[in-house]
Nucleic acid binder design. Sequence first.
DNA 1: CTGACTTTGTGCATCGGTTCACAAAAGGAC
DNA 2: GTCCTTTTGTGAACCGATGCACAAAGTCAG
Lengths: 235, 235
Amino acid sequence: MIRRMSQARERGIPEATVARLPLYLRALNGMAERGLATVSSEDLAVAAGVNSAKLRKDLSHLGSYGTRGVGYDVEYLIYQISRELGLTQDWAIAIVGVGNLGRALANYGGFVSRGFRIAALLDADPEVVGDHIAGLNVEHIDELEAVIRRRGVSIVVLATPAVAAQQVADRVVAAGVTSILNFAPVVLSVPDGVDIRKVDLSIELQILAFHEQRKTDRMTGGPAMAEEWPEAVDL
Amino acid sequence: MIRRMSQARERGIPEATVARLPLYLRALNGMAERGLATVSSEDLAVAAGVNSAKLRKDLSHLGSYGTRGVGYDVEYLIYQISRELGLTQDWAIAIVGVGNLGRALANYGGFVSRGFRIAALLDADPEVVGDHIAGLNVEHIDELEAVIRRRGVSIVVLATPAVAAQQVADRVVAAGVTSILNFAPVVLSVPDGVDIRKVDLSIELQILAFHEQRKTDRMTGGPAMAEEWPEAVDL
DNA sequence: CTGACTTTGTGCATCGGTTCACAAAAGGAC
DNA sequence: GTCCTTTTGTGAACCGATGCACAAAGTCAG
């Protein structure tokens, strides 16, 4: 027995593809709202800001959901991508650290929109504990393990100061959490099997600055004739 | 005349390398604070969370700044990376959209820390205009072009609602800005030569959810024997 | 000055991801 | 039913990034 399956799928979607699926999903939702029933790979690619061949290859990893000569059924594709991403189930997330950023995240609508539910806000500062933010009561960090267990939290968002992040990470990992979204500017060390994604505002700015500098260098004389070092290195 | 230069450099640092330089810089700053004078590629790689061969290759794109048998001079390397990233100059940035996120960004210390200076906060809501946040007066979005010109703003951070983002982007581009950090969940379309970096909180969560789902699937039966589709597709 | 030791810088094989270009599949006209 | 048009799904070439493994270059002891 050969079990051709539908070409690919059966296991392992490339990481680069996974990172783009949410993008397609957002574009598709916009199209569904505007009442579109089907969409071609070309149109969807433009809406998502990618190359159409890449889009088709990405979708082919999920299965063969298009109709040649027609395109993709918008609603069906939304369902398939949502299912693949795990958004058809309900994810309880906890936000640790209720400073400016934590507050912003708690109020950010995009989280709740699909599949995600903020189940807890935690902070170490007694000044903040007890505040009501986005309809939730801020709880003390001492409750971390209990809250994770009782409310079935499976994803933790770290918005603590840098010095506290590793310590909190150790505790949430010990409590059984294996997915962490880290906003603190530190490299967390966690055991194998724990997924960490890092969002670092300052790094993004530095990358922009690099390119901006290159652009302005090019205007004013060009880098080829700019000095290389304050003093010579090659003798 | 051959002009060997110091091997690489002269032009074009790989994008992947640029994205890691800020990481090295942060690790090096920590080491400088702890008084370390030199560091080996191995130690620095561990601190930055990367492979040491990759670190050495990354640094080799900037020039040959290490000493064999010894390692890298911490202060000197900090200076070289900072210069390469353009952090030795002062960047004026403007934040557009002073909601929860905009406020968090304005108060985020990591921006100011090296080279970046928040030069303006702008919003369309008259309720918010005039507020004082992080020592700055919130100005009306009508002032956008004037503020960019007068204060030499070269990087704009978009923290507006999704619907307003494209419109604001068009205006800042028209005003001559060529670097944008976008937090709004939309695909911006801008002319060639304008750099956009996107930070999307909801997408990061969706990627985590995907991996989390895979992990829990594996516990409960394994994906190989999980059903593929509600109905069969291959006949 | 010599020889043992350390650590960089890089050539090379490899890998994952992107893009092109086209055959295969579907729909519609007549 | 046949032909023509559209659009998918994918083979294959290409491109950039990664990581191994080692020669080259330096330090340091004696």
